[in-house]
């Protein structure tokens, strides 16, 4: 079977649309809620789900995602639990790609072979390991490739042209452009600067480029809808989850409304 991520980006590209990638941390605010949240994201127009694997020391994340990780770990979420969630999601949805995003240590603890095998059979499509740059990627990448899973890498505003080429050695699926120097959920981005950088990257990168870190509103998403192949929104959704953690239905309604606005903003911007 062709990888769901490849299909997704190829279909959207043919339709002239920008992909909407939404991030949530598995197990936040509680394990049972994540599955409903995932289906809500899809119903509201998300094309790809990034499912955060909680880690005790999320050093590349800002306070919002760190708090989500702490809540998830307090609920007993683990990498095994994340894979179970993906299996459950796949019972009802066989098309929307799922990318796991997290840190290397839980994967090391499970063992690369074990993790990659389970991820593939659970229905995961790609893996983004935040603290694995290309220099440290060879071992895990060979396992992922052998199991037809994509490895997504970050590129940053300060990534040199040489580094883009290093990333290209291992990257597949799409490349995640970190639009600000900072952590997830940082201050808002400068759309013109992002567009200029992405143009430069395109000379060296044939993969789709997603833009994330610091996109908090439909307006911000619209501003880069034409520069990137995908817009990635995480902390803004986590903030909704956090605000309405005690009232599941209100939380899902707000997520649906916010993600719906993002969808409209992207499609309108592309149509203009």
């Amino acid at each position: 079977m062709t990888n769901r991520l490849d299909c997704c980006f190829s279909d959207l590209n043919d339709a002239g649309r920008c992909a909407l990638v939404t991030y949530v941390t598995a197990g936040d605010p509680e394990t049972a809620a994540t599955l409903s949240i995932m289906h809500t994201l899809v119903a509201a127009g998300a094309d790809v789900i990034e499912l955060g694997v909680p880690f005790s020391d999320p050093m590349a994340d800002g306070p919002t995602i760190q708090r989500a990780s702490e809540r998830a770990l307090a609920n007993g979420m683990s990498l095994t639990g994340v894979l179970d969630l993906v299996r459950e999601f796949r019972n009802d949805n066989q098309t929307v790609p799922i990318v796991l995003m997290g840190y290397l240590n839980p994967i090391e603890a499970m063992g690369y072979v074990n993790f990659v095998g389970q991820a593939a059979s659970a229905g995961v499509d790609g893996v983004l390991i935040v603290d694995v740059p290309p220099e440290e990627a060879a071992d895990i990448n060979s396992q992922l490739v052998a199991n037809k899973l994509k490895q997504i890498f970050l590129v940053a505003p300060n990534s040199s042209p040489n580094r883009i080429e290093d990333v290209c050695k291992f990257a597949s699926g799409f490349v995640y452009y970190v639009s600000v120097k900072g952590v997830t959920g940082s201050k808002s981005i400068d759309a013109d600067e992002v567009s200029a950088r992405i143009k430069q990257f395109r000379q060296r990168l044939s993969l789709p480029i997603g833009v994330g870190f610091g996109i908090k509103s439909p307006e911000a998403a619209a501003a880069i809808a034409c520069a990137g192949d995908a817009v990635i929104v995480g902390s803004a959704i986590i903030e909704i989850i956090e605000r309405h953690a005690s009232d599941r239905q209100t939380m899902l309604d707000h997520i649906k409304s916010f993600v719906g606005q993002l969808r409209v903003a992207l499609d309108t911007a592309r149509a203009a």
């Binding site: 290397l104 970050l154 940053a156």
Partner: peptide
């Protein structure tokens, strides 16, 4: 083992 932003 750091995020890309720190590699530079």
């Amino acid at each position: 083992f750091v995020a890309e932003t720190l590699m530079g």
